[in-house]
Design a binder for these strands. Structure first.
Length: 416
RNA sequence: GGGGAGAUUCCCGAGUGGUCAAAGGGGGCAGACUGUAAAUCUGUUGGCACAGCCUUCGUAGGUUCAAAUCCUACUCUCCCCA
């Protein structure tokens, strides 16, 4: 999307420059509205899991930029809509979650967002659509809201294309009405005039915008962000274990750091712009390797994002551990994932296969055997090339065993 | 409600009585090359007490010396008609 930026609202310009803007319902109109004063806007997020992952965060990075520019931001926890499940762009229906599970997820997600955005209750706060959706009366809802939706039109939305091939149930088909109603409700309660979200939300956002125009006769705005993919075409945020979750119990700060440290070169500038708050020109210099090389840029990206999500202390520890393990001596490597083993086992000696199998590096002995057979297993820089190798206390260095699988997966084993 | 097709290992997808832990592709992992990048080439990819055994081909039973493959019932999915 190319637009003149000279006369555009400053906050929007920031988003534009940083690559956030994918589609806008009326960019000029929005720019004028934002010039006139604070605009109240929202992002919705359904608590279908206990933790957000990085893919959820793009709209929240944008939200934070807009908040810092003086606008009023609402994070909508979709405990109500999570009971239905958004079919947009999905191949299959989501499995139904219990209400209790959804509410628990909602709480933990809200606290993750609080840490990132910093809700003050006035210029930044959360809302929960359960508060108005859960008690809706079906007949009234159909008469007041349903009347404004054309099935013909809904079926033409891109978001439903896949599902029309594989199957779409009525409950999911209603999702768009509920999300539209959320927008209307937020407009009525808080004067919310703008909804932002991932580009897969475009259809739902436009529908909400049209509902408000019909019911309230007011123009509101919608803005979407690109779905971030990696240079190699894969969806970003995927790790061996699944998505790149923010919960440190699910993805340790070290693993989180390593994820960013290992992105493809071509993605660096783009990710610096979207996932950090460093000045634009610095992002570009780092991304082009003009500040100590491309790898220094990746390390900076990793440190910045880890700091934003896990805090400075964890980011420092993760960086120190990464440096220690990839060559540097004498650095703190406590952030590398670890586990203890009874000291007696080590005195007796433990087969290398078993040692690897009990770490996160290998999920079974078979896998450990394969790893060793292929020459990918190291203990304190000694390559294990014999399946029968016994590792005992004499292998210890600095009181621990540093296991390495392949070139970049590390794990510490500590006698206790 | 009637008719038809289907459910296979992480995913897609072959397989229609033994030679099937199950082709091929994708993804993952490892090796080489590098920069903790990409691309490329090679190998590998259910578990274990590992020349053997166990678990896996929607679920539950059955036929058979032998079943992912045959039979029965059930569950779910898709398509066509109403």
């Amino acid at each position: 999307m190319q637009h003149r930026t000279d006369d555009m609202n400053a906050a929007l310009q920031v988003l534009q420059e940083r690559g956030f803007i994918q589609q806008c319902t009326d960019l000029d109109g929005l720019s004028r509205a934002m010039d006139q004063g604070p605009v109240t806007l929202y992002v919705g997020c359904d608590p279908t899991g206990s933790s957000l992952h990085i893919g959820h965060m793009v709209p929240f990075f944008a939200l934070r930029h807009l908040h810092e520019a003086g606008h009023v931001v609402i994070a909508l926890i979709g405990a109500g809509t999570a009971r239905i499940g958004d079919p947009s762009g999905k191949t299959e229906a989501r499995k139904m979650l219990s209400y209790e599970q959804i509410d628990r997820n909602g709480l933990s997600i809200a606290s993750q967002l609080d840490r990132f955005i910093g809700f003050d209750g006035r210029t930044a706060f959360t809302a929960n659509n359960k508060d108005w959706l859960a008690s809706l009366n079906y007949i009234d809802f159909l008469r007041d809201i349903g009347i404004h939706f054309s099935v013909n039109r809904m079926l033409s939305f891109e978001a439903y294309k896949k599902r029309l091939e594989t199957g779409l149930t009525f409950i999911e088909f209603n999702y768009q009405l509920l999300q539209s109603y959320d927008f209307l409700e937020l407009y009525r309660r808080y004067g919310c005039r703008m909804q932002i979200g991932g580009d897969d939300q475009w259809g739902n956002i436009v529908a909400g915008m049209e509902l408000i125009r019909r019911v309230e006769g007011v123009e509101v705005f919608g803005l979407t962000f690109p779905l971030v993919t990696m240079a190699d075409g894969s969806k970003m945020g995927k790790t061996e274990k699944g998505a790149l979750f923010l919960d440190p119990e699910m993805v340790s700060p070290y693993e989180f750091f390593q994820y960013w440290r290992n992105i493809p070169d071509q993605d660096l500038t783009r990710f610096l712009l979207m996932f950090t708050f460093l000045p634009v020109d610095q992002c570009r210099r780092l991304g082009e390797g003009k500040e100590g090389g491309i790898n220094a840029g990746k390390e900076r990206l990793a440190h910045e994002v880890t700091r934003l999500i896990h805090g400075l202390e964890e980011a420092d520890k993760a960086r120190a551990a990464a440096r220690a393990v990839f060559g540097g001596e004498g650095m703190d490597r406590t952030a590398v994932p670890s586990r203890g083993i009874p000291a007696v086992d080590l005195t007796k000696g433990i087969p290398a296969v078993e040692l690897f199998a009990m770490t996160d590096l290998c999920s079974s002995k078979g896998e450990a055997r394969r790893l060793i057979g292929q020459g990918g297993a190291m203990v304190n820089d000694r390559r294990i090339d014999d399946l029968e190798t016994l590792v005992d206390a004499s292998w210890l260095r600095e009181g621990e065993l540093l296991l390495k699988a392949g070139k970049k997966r590390f794990f510490r084993v500590l006698p206790e």
